[in-house]
């Protein structure tokens, strides 16, 4: 249940930036290749924000899909999981999206 620590990091950062103002929404970007489960994040978010300026805030989660670039055939392709294999058969690939784990923005006031 690493989502609890991750949520704690999000709430700590958000409360620091809010500087006492009530937080209404928080937007995070969690790529599908990150091993972070959005439903768990939401569950932990409600627990973690209790008693803070972010209590009752809405958590919005943007989930970029996994994509990769193949260095052999020079094509970009969809990567549904971490098995690094291009449809051309090459394993010489670089993940280009899906590993994001960012706090994007928040709305206060």
């Amino acid at each position: 249940m690493h989502e609890l620590s991750i949520t704690q990091s999000i709430v700590d950062a958000v409360c620091e930036q809010a500087a006492g103002r009530p937080v209404r929404t928080v937007l995070v970007r969690v790529g599908i290749l990150t091993a972070v489960v959005p439903d768990s994040l939401r569950f932990c978010f409600d627990l973690t924000t209790a008693g803070t300026v972010a209590e009752g805030a809405q958590l919005e989660i943007d989930q970029p899909p996994g994509t990769a670039h193949c260095r052999a055939c020079e094509k970009d392709f969809a990567l549904p999981d971490l098995v690094l294999l291009c449809p051309c058969g090459s394993a010489d690939v670089a993940v280009t999206s899906g590993q994001e784990l960012q706090i994007v923005s928040m709305r206060v006031g």
Binding site: A13, L101, Q102, I103, S105, M106
Partner: peptide
């Protein structure tokens, strides 16, 4: 309300 852009890594700390 005001939207504040953070664009920071969740595990930055």
């Amino acid at each position: 309300g005001e939207t504040i852009t953070l664009e920071q890594r969740v595990l930055g700390k």
